[in-house]
Amino acid sequence: MTTGAPTPTYPARPRRSRLRTFLPLGVAAWLVLEIWLLTVVADATSGLVVFLLLLGGLVLGSVVVKRAGRRAFQALNEALQRGGTPESGGGNGLMMLGGLLIMLPGLVSDALGLILLIPPVQKTLSRYAERTVDRKLRAASAGSFGDAFQQARIHRPDGKIVPGEVVRDQPGDEPQGPVPPLTR
């Protein structure tokens, strides 16, 4: 009878978030819907019309992205010349997202991209995004500096946590003696 090292037990894997579970399924469903709609349009008209729709979406989307990029760069340049910081918002990010959606091949993405180019929709979505980001930042900063220090501790492979800090010797300083190994 031999006695060996006990079999290590591993903690249970954390559950996958709902987003990680359903995002691939949603992307696959969206792709199937886009392909199905393009085949319906091709059956109703012709393949040439579908090709022209896709080409027009690519051209229109690139124009929108280029325009939004120019506006964002111009706003940044003006802010830097004033010596301040660029203003948040402005709709350039949503306009770029709309342009990218238009550039993607498909009719549903084109419709979503065109909806994002409507100014009232941009204002509503930007206000919602700003409130969400503010709420998340307030929740994240609710902890103290000590909490951040606890999270920054070093984790060893065996699961033990070793608190510590890095101390850099000054150039020319010699060690005072032998350095003891970490205790187990």
Score class of each variant (00 low, 15 high):
M1L: 08
G4Q: 09
Y10D: 10
P11W: 03
A12D: 09
T21D: 10
T21H: 06
P24L: 09
A29G: 06
W30A: 12
V32K: 05
E34G: 12
A42M: 10
D43A: 13
D43V: 05
D43G: 15
A44P: 01
T45D: 11
G47V: 14
L55P: 14
L55A: 15
V59K: 00
V59M: 07
L60C: 06
V63L: 13
V64Q: 02
V65H: 09
V65P: 11
K66H: 10
K66T: 13
A68W: 04
R71Y: 15
E78Q: 04
A79D: 10
R82M: 13
R82L: 09
G89R: 08
G90D: 14
L94M: 02
M95K: 07
M96V: 13
L97E: 00
G99C: 11
G99R: 15
I102W: 07
I102C: 07
M103W: 02
L107A: 05
S109P: 07
A111P: 07
A111G: 08
A111Q: 14
G113V: 10
G113H: 03
L114E: 08
I115R: 00
I115T: 13
I118N: 00
I118P: 02
K123M: 01
R131S: 07
D134G: 07
A140N: 13
S141P: 00
A142H: 11
G143F: 03
S144K: 01
S144I: 02
F145P: 06
G146Y: 12
A148W: 15
Q150C: 05
Q151R: 15
A152C: 11
I154W: 14
I154D: 10
R156Q: 15
D158N: 07
D158H: 02
G159Q: 04
P163I: 09
V166G: 14
V167I: 06
R168H: 05
D169K: 01
Q170T: 14
G172T: 04
Q176F: 09
G177M: 01
P180V: 14
L182M: 10
